[in-house]
């Protein structure tokens, strides 16, 4: 372990949390404008977190206290770890070589799992229903998500994210496989709101049905940790999509020959812009233009429709590669 790695492992999570909250702010603002409202200032999520951290943390009487308190930390830790696997523009991922796409898949699952366990541990009927729904939803969207990752493994013969990021996927596949990759992209876009518990798949936290579900009993610091992990997860998910499907660097498009700091800065900003576009498309626009599905409807959508799209994409890649 070099000093550089240690620096990265501190700086990346901090940067990730900051960016996650900024993106959440932008998301809220754009969503408000889409519905003819003014919306909160972009720094509102920071205030929210600050306020939550100041508030009293209440543990319900019939909750399993240690489990109830541990799960927010687990969710936050796994989302921070997730950040360390994402190559940031042309920067290499800090944990490069220690894990790959499969680890990312499990880290994403771990957060949902932590929320579900926290919900079960809080001993409220609303949380239990929410946690049950989250488990069902997780089982439904894991399959398309895994299919996408297998598709990439087929193309690159590797699970490493840095390898994938260094060569754009579109440049090494045949036209037929490229269409398959497009289908995988569509499948991943549909999974994104479910993974992030956003409308139309925020079934586990349905406000009007079960009063925020899994989060119903959480307050204060615990809720702040869930809030932060949610923000980070949103950023990370969009970043993964960019890395998988749009890894083009700005210098390669424009034919620039930048070096040193300028290269890093320009590429980082370009990367953030790409992430923002994906975030707005996959999260903001979708969550504003749909209502909430029922859990059985959502399951059917993932098991039948999205799965079909993803498997078709996989088959095309298999034939095309």
């Amino acid at each position: 372990m070099t000093p550089e790695t240690i620096f990265y492992s501190v700086a990346f999570p901090l940067l990730g949390v900051f960016l996650g909250l900024v993106y959440k702010g932008i998301d809220r603002r754009i969503s408000a404008r889409l519905t003819s409202r003014i919306g909160p200032p972009i720094r509102q999520p920071f205030w929210d977190v600050g306020k939550l951290l100041l508030k009293e943390t209440i543990v319900p009487k019939n909750a399993i206290a240690w489990l109830f308190n541990a799960m927010p930390i687990l969710a936050f830790a796994s989302s921070l770890t997730l950040l360390l696997y994402i190559p940031f523009g042309v920067l290499k991922a800090p944990l490069e070589g220690y894990g790959d796409l499969v680890v990312i898949l499990y880290l994403l699952t771990l957060q949902s799992l932590a929320m579900a366990i926290g919900g079960f541990a809080s001993g409220s009927p609303f949380s239990s229903v929410g946690a049950q729904r989250e488990m069902v939803l997780m089982m439904s969207y894991e399959m398309p998500l895994a299919t996408v990752i297998v598709g990439f493994a087929l193309i690159y013969r590797s699970f490493s994210l840095t390898t994938i990021a260094s060569t754009p996927v579109w440049s090494i596949v045949s036209p037929l496989a490229a269409f398959g990759v497009l289908l995988l992209f569509v499948a991943l876009l549909t999974v994104t709101p479910a993974e992030l518990a956003k409308l139309p798949f925020d079934i586990a936290e349905a406000e009007t049905e079960i009063a925020e579900g899994m989060l119903a009993e959480y307050s204060g610091r615990n809720l702040a940790l869930f809030y932060l992990s949610d923000a980070v997860r949103g950023f990370a998910m969009a970043a993964i999509e960019v890395v998988l499907f749009f890894p083009f660097t700005l210098s390669s498009i424009l034919g620039l020959s930048l070096t040193g700091f300028a290269l890093y800065a320009v590429e980082a900003l370009w990367f953030l812009l790409k992430v923002l576009i994906i975030y707005l498309l996959a999260v903001t626009l979708v969550r504003t233009s749909f209502g909430r599905f029922k859990i059985d409807q959502a399951s059917r959508i993932f098991w039948v429709h999205v799965n079909l799209v993803a498997l078709l994409g996989l088959a095309l890649i298999w034939v095309g590669v």
Partner: peptide, 9 residues
């Protein structure tokens, strides 16, 4: 909603 994005709040 895309139309509303272009309008004034």
């Amino acid at each position: 909603i895309l139309k509303q994005l272009l309008e004034k709040p």
